[in-house]
Nucleic acid binder design. Structure first.
Lengths: 123, 123
DNA sequence: TTCATATTCAACCATATGGTTGACCTTGCT
DNA sequence: AGCAAGGTCAACCATATGGTTGAATATGAA
């Protein structure tokens, strides 16, 4: 039987990508940003516009989203464009699908995810 | 057009349930606990057993999972039983579905795959 | 060159998070 | 009654998180 508890434990060296994805999604500002990017790619300043917080704060949120792989950022001229990167979301959704709450299922993504997660277990 | 940024903003009075669900899922210990509960309902002490941390710490994790609605706890005698409560997960999955990241795939194959993965390997 | 725009950096602050330990209640066993 | 087992509580600690402000770094425009 798979020892799921130990399988999901972290060593100091590695950080499970799911940690970052779910942590990124846990903030309502960041979820709102993702929803905005669903409609269109946007520059950092435009992303920040509807929020009642500083541009620097939004810039940090975008970095967190980027490190989680949820968005990609590309600098063109002095403008940095942000676009949705759904692959990271897919990994998270696949983890959830393990609990049988979904109708649609992506087996390929699940296999990739499982391979990754099993690969970097603690010795 | 719906103002998604403002729509997702929080007032002090309300806390979006998705905040709690995703925050709960962001911790690898808690994800491992959920995976364990997928196999069977468990008492708090038994949940704690495979982890290298105190019972009190696990007790806190379980409270967080319960407050997020991801598990239910029922006390019978002096034992508190924990069981998976997939509805909260479903809410999170619905949010994710909004991003259209789900490729429809063969559910039977997925279940066979999951069964194989869980079938072998002793701790 | 000079100025404005777009974005990040650095330092700082308050609060949240994840863990510890030891004391504390309940409940069951004998 | 008396003791052990199952869990939680409270106080505490270190670090992470989410925000601020002001200075710094490109890049584009005049």
């Amino acid at each position: 039987m798979v020892d799921l508890a130990h399988a999901a434990l972290n060593t100091p060296a590695m950080t499970n990508p799911l940690d970052q994805v779910f942590a990124a999604l846990a903030d309502p500002t960041r979820r709102a940003i993702l929803a905005m990017l669903l409609e269109d790619d946007m520059a950092v300043t435009d992303v920040a516009e509807p929020f009642a917080m500083s541009l620097a704060a939004i810039s940090k949120h975008l970095q967190i989203l980027a490190e989680a792989g949820l968005i990609a950022q590309e600098k063109r001229g002095r403008v940095k464009w942000c676009k949705l990167e759904p692959d990271a979301l897919r990994a998270a959704s696949v983890w959830m699908q393990g609990f049988g709450v979904f109708d649609p299922v992506d087996l390929d993504a699940f296999e990739r995810f499982l391979a990754d997660e099993l690969a970097d277990q603690a010795p």
